[in-house]
Design a protein around this nucleic acid. Structure first.
Lengths: 158, 158
DNA sequence: GACTGATTCATACTTTAGTATTAAAATGAG
DNA sequence: CTCATTTTAATACTAAAGTATGAATCAGTC
């Protein structure tokens, strides 16, 4: 259904043109019969046809030719929410699969704490901190605390 | 002078049309005289004229009438940093009075580079890097690279 | 109750970081 | 040219970080 409708809409100008042509031919035939047009009035006759079809051509062209669509892209400045930038990237954090204690250590690490500082803060031994830090390195695929901080800041997980 | 030139340029299509019309009329007159067109071939004759003038009209329209230009304004969202959060705090940086080399070292430090990495990057010995790092610590009033990074990020100097 | 993962801790060792001191060479301003 | 600063570098040392391994304890799951 939609298909035929589309065809009709696309070719309606052509159909209209055909109808007008038919009407003209009938009119001419009628005039020919009615007034018995003689040879010397042929020029006027042709002239009228010429004028008519020229106008028709112009009309056709203006209606058939697609209007050029000129797309002007206007840049609109949109201010980004600043708060989003500092928000923790939960998805990235989840990917790392850190334990709660490891994440605690990471946060203290980010504050510039040494292993001894972290041990003191969490009331555990330095050995324990070292274990957590080592596990952290493996999970985050880094080799030092500075690399850890760089990656953590980059992923927005602290 | 320019005025007439303008008129000519603007109406050259019309003039051309006139000329074509004249040529056609002459051609028709010639055909009329040459073959003594009879009444029953009049339909074909008119048909040819109709087709010709339709094409002429179309041609006229496409050349005379300004192409319809539909201007569509599309807004493109351009994200802009609102805050100064990511901008380097020049005043704080100036306060620290770091030498250019010290600042270079600081930036590499922030990327998680080890002393060896920095030495390799700057084409200097590890001893030199250690010197720069030590001077950096004194100037920034810190005791380790992690503290340096924490403070540098806090002061927005990297 | 056995299993798993998290947390805790220790020891021994290697590597890296950081301190202190000294000093040569380069750079740039007055 | 001189002076101050920066950049470079070395040596010797200490401190901290990081690795490897093993193991005990505990909480939650099947």
């Amino acid at each position: 259904m939609n298909f035929f409708k589309k065809i009709f809409l696309n070719s309606r100008h052509i159909i209209l043109y055909g109808l007008l042509l038919a009407i003209l031919v009938f009119t001419l035939k009628w005039l020919q019969w009615k007034f018995l047009i003689v040879d010397n009035s042929l020029d006027i006759y042709i002239g009228l046809i010429a004028v008519f079809f020229t106008i028709l051509g112009v009309w056709l062209a203006t209606h058939l030719v697609k209007t050029k669509v000129k797309t002007v892209v206007v840049e609109k400045e949109v201010y980004v929410e600043t708060s989003d930038e500092n928000r923790i990237n939960e998805s990235e954090l989840k990917k790392l699969n850190l334990s709660s204690r490891e994440y605690e250590v990471l946060q203290l690490l980010a504050k510039g704490y040494s292993n001894a500082d972290i041990a003191e803060t969490l009331f555990v031994s330095i050995s324990t901190v070292k274990s957590h830090v080592s596990n952290l390195f493996v999970k985050m695929d880094v080799k030092s605390r500075t690399q850890t901080l760089e990656k953590a800041k980059r992923l927005n997980i602290i």
